[in-house]
Design a protein around this nucleic acid. Structure first.
Length: 768
DNA sequence: GGTGGTAGACTTTTT
DNA sequence: GTCTACCACC
């Protein structure tokens, strides 16, 4: 912390006005430069609310704020640091009314979106032809690129899915509007709309004197446009990034924003940071060798003044469980020898599914695994239910929340009743809760011809009373935590869970945790309040009832941030996360698991993505993973891995071959190689003999790998196949082998002239 | 309207 | 292997 900045870092910090680009490798002190630069700006008289700092994750935002406060004191607390999404939410709360967005809008997360789309698809009678998932993927794709989902896929009329999008998308937008909700993509698009607004646009452009963006290689076109607008008056735009760490191309990130920055800002000052302060040279050599194989990159070589370091250890294990056990045992050894403490360690993997065996084995070796999952906690059903109650309290027109909770816990209000309510709601053009109220308060069953039996009305009446009672709690000066307790209590949820003999107790604990999260949130924002008041983006809107305000903020936090990672005080906590989550972090000791071809690199064939580009992105991911380690790096792989309950023979990752042999410790098996035999014969026989892939064996010191997709197992293009649900179709393409085989099949769609194309697991197909 | 059983999907990666 | 959405049954 006290260490001085090097020449390049200093130059970046001291840079005055005008555009600045810092192209910085891993571990070169990127964030440090940003923090010092902001501190410098504050020192030179720029007010905190005149600075906007955008980070990629909430965690990064939190960390940056902490470092800034440590460096220049509480003044930094008055500055806005946030992700693109959080920043946009903030701008919309302040200015959104200009484009007709209510101030208390809610944020639809992916799950909400999925549910809404499912309902709309069903309503339109398309459920056999298109999935909510497909439509959501397309909305996401288009939203990340600033495209119209109706024209983004194929020319006039579009492709197969477009015909459904044309019906569903407008209805989806209506639904968002009715529920006063904005989805993730919408957050940014709506702010862009604001930027084009004749009055608000110019004000936004002048709102900040300095705009700084971290991890700029991960911004997409839409985000870039926003940044450009926000900095268009002063042009004081600082961007920091590393093209080698671009790992979000799949969601529209454009590393070109970084590399071609001078196209939009010809007068940009560019500074390169290449001296790495984080890792040993062994680790750096490995990272450089891996990334060096990428062709599409701006050459940049990391170096360090320090030499040597512990060699990288390769743990070749029997199966996924054995891998987990070896990792846990090795770590236990390190900790017991005093080589490191659990808090210094991170266990990384490519896919979330890999965490489970690791968690189990870590527990077995007396560690407390902590999985840093994006949303794990807030994805729990009971948590989502409780949140849905809050959403309905925040906005009585939140029909999706109403549908979620009206019969949770079961109170005898079934689908039939809700259907009738929907009719009433449509006839009177009100929300479901209002419709329920009108129905039970005896404004008669006359609306829309819907009639409800006395029993149904009684039950519905109880629900309306419940919500009214809770609204009373909300307005009666209760804290968020108290409100939540009342929700859980009065809704009967607690009682419901208590009588559950399964995991009811666990679920109750989750709800208790949610109450804690709420109370933390309120404590936290109470502190922030004075600081935020002076903020440029925050108007004088203190008139709202405090409870209601807290509610909207809390719901926003839940949608955007998830849980702030709680204090992991307990002794032997070890952190686990995906590589994606680890970007920007560093650890003394890193275990990188699942170093197997097909898993990492993923090599998942996807339509319309260039295979080479995909592999390069995987390689960048490997680069990110390796450079997380400061001192000690373990790479682990399994010969057999359970995928969907089936054992699969795995080959070591090709990335292992890219690492110079000199970086490794002498070939050594882990002390306790689990007694798992070599891949069973049948499985090997199942592989086509001609596949050069298999030349590699586990005993090769310098293995050679080749990979090839093969279409040899009977699903060649043109073959006619049958699927239980979709009937007869024609194979267009096939990817993968064995249980991994995915086949692209064309089925006749509703419109015979427009075929329906589906990618299906080969296991569900029969040849005809 | 609630329930228990089962077929199908699910495993890239996230705000 | 695990979770879910849906269906047949009560």
């Amino acid at each position: 912390m006290v260490a001085s900045l090097n020449r390049e870092q200093q130059a970046a910090v001291e840079h005055g006005d005008g555009p600045l680009l810092v192209l910085a490798g891993a571990g070169t002190g990127k964030t440090r430069v940003l923090v010092h630069r902001i501190a410098r700006l504050l020192e030179s008289g720029v007010a905190p609310w005149e600075i906007l700092a955008v980070t990629f994750t909430n965690k990064a935002a939190r960390e940056m704020r902490e470092r800034l406060v440590a460096l220049c004191g509480p003044v930094a607390e008055r500055m806005w640091i946030g992700t693109f999404h959080a920043t946009c939410a903030r701008l919309l709360r302040r200015w959104g009314e200009a484009i007709g967005l209510p101030r208390d809008f809610l944020i639809f997360d992916d799950d909400d979106q999925q549910k809404a789309l499912t309902a709309l698809i069903k309503e339109a009678g398309f459920e056999d032809q298109i999935s909510a998932r497909t439509i959501a993927a397309r909305l996401d794709y288009a939203g990340n690129r600033g495209l119209d989902p109706l024209t983004a896929f194929g020319g006039p009329g579009g492709d197969y899915a477009t015909q459904f999008l044309e019906v569903i998308v407008p209805r989806y937008r209506e639904r968002l509007a009715r529920e006063k909700a904005v989805d993730f993509a919408g957050l940014i698009l709506k702010v862009l709309e604001l930027c084009r607004h004749p009055e608000v646009g110019p004000r936004l452009a002048g709102l900040y004197r300095h705009v700084l963006v971290d991890e700029f290689q991960d911004t997409n076109l839409v985000q870039y446009e926003l940044v450009r607008h926000l900095s268009s008056i002063t042009r004081n735009l600082t961007v920091v990034g590393d093209d080698d760490q671009s790992i979000y191309a799949w969601r529209g990130a454009e590393p070109r924003n970084l590399l071609d920055f001078d196209r939009d800002f010809p007068d940009v000052v560019e500074i390169k940071l290449e001296e790495n302060y984080r890792s040993t040279s062994v680790i750096l050599d490995a990272a450089n060798a891996v990334i060096g194989k990428n062709l599409d990159r701006r050459g940049k070589a990391l170096w360090t003044e320090r030499g040597g370091g512990d060699p990288i250890e390769y743990l070749a294990c029997g199966d996924d469980r054995g891998e987990a056990e070896t990792v846990a045992r090795t770590l236990r050894g390190l900790v017991d020898d005093g080589a490191c403490s659990p808090g210094d360690v991170c266990i990384l993997y490519r896919t979330n599914a890999q965490s489970r065996p690791l968690e189990e084995q870590l527990r077995r070796f007396r560690f407390e695994p902590k999985v840093v999952g994006a949303t794990a906690f807030f994805d729990r059903k009971e948590v989502k239910d409780a949140i849905a109650y809050l959403r309905l309290l925040a906005n009585p027109d939140a029909d999706s929340a109403f549908e979620r909770v009206v019969n949770v816990p079961p109170r005898g209000i079934g689908a039939a009743t809700v259907d009738k309510l929907r009719e009433v709601a449509r006839a009177r053009d009100v929300g479901l809760l209002a419709a329920a109220r009108a129905t039970v308060r005896g404004h008669g069953p006359a609306f829309g011809g819907a009639s409800l039996g006395a029993a149904a009305r009684k039950k519905l009446g109880a629900f309306v009373d419940l919500m009214d009672g809770l609204a009373g709690v909300r307005d009666g000066g209760a804290t968020l935590a108290e409100l939540l307790i009342q929700v859980v209590e009065r809704s009967g949820y607690r009682e419901f869970l208590e009588h559950d003999d399964g995991d009811g107790a666990d679920r109750m604990r989750n709800l208790a945790e949610l109450v804690n999260v709420a109370s933390d949130y309120q404590a936290e924002t109470a502190d922030d309040e004075p600081g935020e008041g002076g903020d440029a983006a925050d108007g004088a809107d203190g008139a709202d009832a405090p409870a209601a305000r807290g509610l909207a903020g809390f719901l926003e936090r839940v949608a955007l941030v998830g849980a702030a990672d709680g204090a992991d005080g307990r002794g032997e906590t070890v952190t686990l996360m995906t590589i994606h989550m680890a970007k920007g972090l560093e650890f003394e000791v890193v275990f990188l698991c699942g170093m197997e071809d097909g898993l990492f690199p993923s090599l998942r064939p996807r339509e319309e993505t260039d295979e080479q580009a995909a592999l390069e992105e995987e390689r960048r991911l490997a680069y990110v993973a390796i450079t997380r380690a400061k001192r000690v790096l373990y790479l682990a792989s399994a010969r057999l891995r359970r995928v969907w309950g089936e054992l699969k023979a795995q080959m070591p990752s090709r990335f292992l071959d890219d690492i110079p042999p000199g970086c490794f410790a002498l070939p050594r098996r882990p002390a306790a190689t689990p007694a798992i035999p070599r891949p069973p014969a049948p499985r090997r026989a199942a592989r086509p003999a001609r596949d050069e892939f298999d030349q590699r064996t586990w005993d090769d010191d310098v293995p050679v790998i080749r990979h090839d997709d093969d279409e040899a197992s009977g699903f060649a293009p043109g073959v006619t196949v049958r699927h239980q649900a979709f009937g007869r179709g024609r194979v267009v393409a096939a990817h993968g082998t064995g249980s991994q085989q995915r086949v692209v099949v064309e089925f006749p769609g509703i419109d015979p002239t427009v075929p329906m194309t589906k990618t299906i697991d080969a296991r569900w197909l029969a040849r005809e």
